[in-house]
Nucleic acid binder design. Structure first.
Length: 519
RNA sequence: GGCCCCAUCGUCUAGAGGCCUAGGACACGGGCCUUUCAAGCCUGCAACCGGGGUUCGAAUCCCCGUGGGGUCACCA
């Protein structure tokens, strides 16, 4: 049997990080078993701008390297892959269910249903529809319709016995049929609902493994009932643990963003990303740009595989020590058996550290290719960058080392080299420059390095140490004010690197100018 | 509330009856290195929800509590 899995997002306008985990696991399982990974768009709820709402999802998956074998853009033998375009099949299935007595037309009004529900509640009994307005024959249906009632189609759920599924993550799970409601599968307007459509499409697509989040576990009985009634074989089920909020076990939801922002780690990640976004002209409104949404990571310059690797670790582990996997290694290592059953909370710090690890592993040239576009977008280099600019940025990247955690971080490390004048951080100026004697110190230091040749880190270090020794100072006494003088900041690459990258004339000019601000 | 799921350091997890004095990673604390900030190295702190069984032996199996979560739409 060829493994066939699917990810079936609704066009909501953004790709949620929890959805990424579900997509990733489906993809990994298919790849692991030489199977097929299918992308289906569950758009039965007829939204207005499906295309617009779908784009971020498709581009997000592509960016993450989660490629699909069948679906939008690539087609496939079971096209179309949009649920809204498969309604004929859904309606035919409803017809079959009706004909076989597994479903019925129902003419109850919402308020009548409410009444029953309330009565059951008052009696302290579990609610079960009386089927009072069920029409099992066309005569009955005609009579109800004559009363001006509207008909929907409901599942005629069994009222005894139970369903047992063998979930790949949870093991044996049993549901009593009598606890299941007669769910609506077709609306009065003839359109079909998700559960029906999903089961029919899964069967049409020959899906062998339904791998989805745990929130769907309690939907399984009605779906299994539909499948069984239609004579479909049941797929294997694997219900993944929920991706929970940072520091909690509650399902991660985009709607609760305000609460997440109270989490210091989440907040820090958000603020860091927002700072970068603002500099490159990306709209960074918190509700559309935050660490729950994949676009956030792409815009800010995280590495896609870092996100994948980090998400794979949410609810799954290979062993007691391996955490980093290449794409091929992850595929080879992945199995449903090793999925954990308990909810896993999303930890921004952990994601950050995985990102750090992968950024760390990149060569200067690889970083250059990723980071240069950020400088272009921020207007710090021309488009395309000149050879000089590129060379400077490359040196900055080398000098910055592991300080650059995401591609967008280059903005804060390269700007003072690329700008004619550094932007001075007032606090840095107050702390390091505005001290008595600093102006004089800077003048003497500028003089002492003016003649250094070549103007490179090694000789500069020697000259600086000699200067310090002669003046009877500590190294820090010189380095801190000089750093602020030439970069405007207190943090950055090593000072000798900064001087060398900037060059003798610019360095000395900046030191001279900073004397005006010094004490 | 009914049904279902879950329960090991703050977080992600390893652990399928003895390898457990419970391992790893992130975070956190201390130290080294050091011109800032990172990185790196050393080191420390920190968990089996509770109670009953079963067993020579339980984090692991069973039961009962407790706690947390999901779900109960003419949403997906």
């Amino acid at each position: 049997m060829t493994v066939r899995t699917r990810f079936a997002p609704s066009p909501t306008g953004y790709l949620h990080i929890g959805g990424v985990r579900t997509a990733l696991f489906n993809w990994l399982y298919a790849r692991r078993h030489g199977g097929t990974f299918i992308l289906r768009i569950d758009d039965t709820d007829a939204e207005r701008n499906v295309e617009e709402a779908l784009e971020p999802i498709l581009s997000g998956l592509k960016w993450l390297g989660i490629d699909w074998d069948e679906g939008p853009g690539v087609g496939g033998p079971h096209a179309p892959y949009f649920q809204s375009q498969r309604s004929a099949g859904h309606k035919a299935a409803v017809g079959k269910l009706l004909a076989s007595g597994h479903a019925y037309r129902d003419f109850a009004k919402p308020e009548e249903l409410d009444e029953e529900r309330k009565a059951a509640q008052a009696a302290g009994k579990p609610y079960l529809y009386s089927r009072r307005f069920a029409a099992f024959t066309s005569d009955e249906a005609a009579r109800f319709a004559a009363e001006g009632r509207q008909g929907v189609v409901r599942l005629k759920m069994p009222r005894e016995g139970s369903l047992v599924i063998d979930d790949a993550v949870r093991g044996r799970v049993e549901f009593a049929w009598e606890r299941e409601q007669d769910h609506v599968i077709q609306r009065a307007d003839g359109s079909c609902l998700y559960h029906l459509a999903s089961v029919v499409d899964d069967h049409d697509f020959e899906i062998t493994h339904v791998i989805r989040a745990e929130e769907h576990l309690s939907n399984t009985p009605r779906q299994a009932y539909i499948a069984l009634s239609l004579g479909y074989p049941l797929p294997a089920y694997a219900h993944l643990p929920l991706v929970a909020e940072p520091g909690s076990r509650t399902k991660l939801s985009k709607r609760k963003l305000a609460a997440y922002l109270k989490n210091p780690d989440f907040r820090q990640m958000q603020d860091h990303g927002t700072r970068i976004a603002e500099r490159i002209g990306v709209a960074a409104a918190a509700d559309t740009f935050n660490p729950v949404i994949v676009d956030f990571y792409r815009e800010v310059g995280y590495l896609p595989w870092a996100i994948d690797n980090a998400m794979a670790l949410l609810g799954w582990a290979y062993d007691d020590k391996t955490e980093f996997f290449s794409r091929d290694e992850l595929i080879a290592a992945f199995s449903l058996e090793r999925i954990n059953a308990s909810p896993a909370s999303f930890d921004p710090k952990k994601l950050w550290s995985v990102q750090d690890h992968y950024m760390h592993a990149l060569s200067a040239d690889e970083k250059l290719a990723l980071m240069l576009p950020y400088l272009v977008k921020a207007g710090l280099v021309s488009s395309p960058p000149t050879a000089d600019q590129t060379a400077t940025v490359r040196r900055v990247i080398e000098a910055s080392g592991d300080r650059l955690k995401v591609s967008g971080d280059i903005l804060g490390y390269a700007d003072f080299f690329l700008l004619e004048e550094p932007v001075l951080d007032p606090q840095a100026v107050a702390q390091k420059l505005a001290k008595p004697g600093v102006a004089d110190l800077l003048a003497r230091y500028a003089g002492s390095i003016a003649a250094v040749t070549p103007f490179e880190p090694g000789p500069l270090e020697e000259a600086t140490k000699a200067f310090v020794a002669e003046a009877g100072l500590k190294l820090g006494d010189v380095i801190h004010p000089v750093r602020v003088a030439i970069t405007g900041k207190t943090v950055g690459p090593g000072l000798y690197d900064c001087l060398a990258i900037l060059g003798a004339s610019k360095s000395i000019a900046r030191i001279d100018r900073a004397r005006g601000l010094a004490g």
